[in-house]
Design a binder for these strands. Structure first.
Length: 562
RNA sequence: GGCCCCAUCGUCUAGUCAGGUCCAGGACACCAGGUUUUCAUCCUGGGAACAGGGGUUCGAAUCCCCUUGGGGUCACCA
């Protein structure tokens, strides 16, 4: 279990997900650790696609998660490439393309009676499983298949009778040695004669993983803790096939803050709660298909596809919990921050150090410091890390990154602004940005045409505009001509101008006039610093808005009095 | 339910393997002040944990046992 007597060049790790368009954060962390371990030991990092489930892997394999890995900064030495190519000497890297390989090793087991054909029907097995459940006992396969004589088994299989192949599990305790958890012993009888080839001829996960780890020379297998008990099966298979045992390391799961398992279903859950809260029995106009919606409502276990979920969440103003790497990217997290934070969930370098980059992780990652307990995913802390990273960027770096993010996720927003406006906005938003997405979510006032801005009289608006003597609205009317006649409309000039005016008219209290101006410019009370806000908007747009605001406020005052 | 594993502030964790320097350190969150033209930052201070019970030992967060709690797993899914 130590790597002391293995030379660094011999080390190989792999990340072996089933094909999917999205990478779950738990998977991302597993990939990150496997990658860091290989890189830190001058080893190989292999990417393998576990697509032995024909039902789930229907059609062309969706390999969108490769993009997620690349975005995170995780590269691989062997495996499929994004453009459809392949690299590495141990291919193919899709298990569905390695069937002959499995078959050859399967035959060895069959010939040696280490495995056998079994003809039980799924219905028979189901019945036995149910019976075991009713007796409150763990189900174990009863070896009914072995009651058929050997010759007959081969003959019937040869004749094409539907069957599976089961591994003949030796009747003895199994010791699992794990680089993270230490040693565990499963009592004899715990592992039954598990299926290694399905009726459709495909190997099961257990068989494929053992053959491939050996053939692809994976010396270290880091995977989720849900595989811990499977390791016993894999150890047995390795012995039967005379393969070496890799070093195993089982990583604890990543949980929600409430302790439940982090799952894509959480997104549906959040939206369902909002739908229920809003008392909706049909989708908001034009958001998603009504039939899709009602089917989704009828079956509480069903899941909406991501675009529908996003649309519905947007309409209901709920924030979806980020689950996949893609979600975090969309929310404006930086890849290096996500890696750092993911690594910190389950590993720590010690010495109270918690901010580090991937290079550091590669250099220092080791199994002995991996946490054994499940970690709850704390988005607040991730957000704080992201804030720190954004604040340490140069203005140029922030502008470029926030712009790239906008072009990907808010193209209409970016298109609506001139480059100068965008740069002003980026600079004004930098110090208050926790994510790359906030600029877009927080500045919708820039997206509204000047003639369409409205001024709802919220509590904060009432306070800034209508309270005090003189009230904000009066001040706004007083300063309007001054601003309209301003020589220059850049932030600095405006600041000088308004400051001077405030000196004369508000006893130097800038706050008295700043909020009315902000409300006039944006329709609300939140925006970047006021002079930046005005400068970004520009003189003409601001004048239009200010005049309309004054009219609107007067109108609502009239209503209030009536 | 059977089996396996685990257990430090609300959360992520340092300290545990080589028992004393730990009436337990850091970070996030929280609370109280302060800075600030809104929001967000930012600054200062504060509360907050060794799950419980037995041992071993001069001495235990650290070693052992039990209880409790948590997680995983019991498919022709991976």
């Amino acid at each position: 279990m130590t790597t002391q007597d293995t030379t660094a060049a011999d080390i190989g790790t792999r990340f072996a997900p089933s094909p999917s368009g999205d990478l779950h954060v738990g998977g991302a962390r597993t990939a990150l650790f496997c990658w860091a371990f290989a890189r830190g030991h001058a080893g190989r990092f292999v990417l393998r696609i576990e697509d032995t489930d024909r039902k789930r892997s229907s059609g062309a394999a969706a390999l969108g998660f490769l993009e997620d890995l690349i975005w995170l900064g995780i590269d691989w030495d062997e495996g499929p490439e994004l453009d459809g190519g392949v690299r590495g000497p141990h291919g193919p890297y899709f298990q569905s393309q390695r069937l002959e390989l499995y078959q050859a090793h399967m035959q060895r087991l069959l010939d040696q009676d280490l495995a056998y054909h079994a003809f039980d029907t799924p219905e028979e097995l189901d019945a036995k499983r149910r019976a075991a459940r009713e007796e409150k006992k763990a189900y174990r396969y009863d070896r009914a298949g072995l009651e058929v004589p050997r010759e007959e088994r081969f003959a019937r299989a040869e004749a094409g009778e539907p069957h599976v192949v089961r591994f003949r599990t030796p009747d003895r305790p199994i010791v699992i040695t794990d680089g993270v958890l230490g040693e565990a012993t499963l009592p004899a009888g715990e592992v039954d004669d598990f299926v290694i080839r399905k009726a459709d001829g495909y190997p099961t996960y257990h068989f494929a993983v053992v053959v491939d780890d050996a053939l692809m020379e994976c010396t270290h297998v880091l995977r989720a803790q849900e595989h811990f008990n499977n390791t016993a099966k894999h150890l047995l298979l390795q012995e039967a096939l005379e393969f070496p045992h890799p070093t195993y390391g089982h990583l604890s799961l990543i949980m929600n803050p409430d302790g439940s398992k982090m799952s894509k279903r959480d997104k549906d859950k959040a939206v369902r709660a909002a739908v229920k809260g809003a008392g909706l029995d049909a989708p908001p106009e034009g958001i998603i298909d009504a039939e899709v919606f009602s089917n989704w409502q009828a079956d509480k276990k069903s899941q909406l596809d991501n675009d529908d979920l996003l649309a519905l969440a947007g309409a209901l103003d709920v924030v979806l919990p980020e689950i996949n790497v893609r979600d975090f990217r969309r929310s404006g997290y930086l890849p290096e921050v996500l890696c750092n934070f993911l690594a910190l969930n389950g590993w720590s370098p010690g010495n109270d150090l918690e901010k580090f980059d991937n290079a550091f992780l590669c250099e220092h990652f080791d199994l002995s410091r991996v946490q054994k307990t499940p970690a709850r995913f704390d988005r607040d802390k991730l957000l704080a890390f992201n804030l720190d990273a954004i604040q340490s960027m140069s203005p140029e770096e922030f502008r470029d990154k926030v712009r790239a993010h906008g072009e990907a996720y808010h193209p209409d927003f970016v298109a609506r602004l001139t480059d100068d406006q965008f740069d002003l906005l980026a600079n004004a938003s930098h110090e208050r940005s926790k994510t790359l997405d906030e600029l877009y979510r927080g500045n919708q006032w820039l997206m509204t045409p000047d003639e369409a801005v409205t001024w709802p009289v919220t509590k904060a608006v009432r306070k800034a505009m209508l309270k005090g003597e003189p009230c904000g609205l009066e001040l706004l009317e007083a300063i309007a001509p001054v601003l309209e006649a301003a020589d220059s409309f850049d932030a600095e000039a405006l600041q000088a101008l308004v400051n001077e005016w405030a000196e004369a008219h508000c006893e130097g209290n800038l706050g008295k006039i700043a909020q009315p101006l902000r409300i006039a410019a944006t329709g609300g009370t939140v925006s970047p610093p006021i002079f930046d806000t005005l400068a970004i908007l520009g003189r003409d747009a601001f004048r239009t808005r200010m005049r309309r605001c004054i009219d609107s406020m007067k109108a609502s005052m009239g209503e209030g009095a009536a």
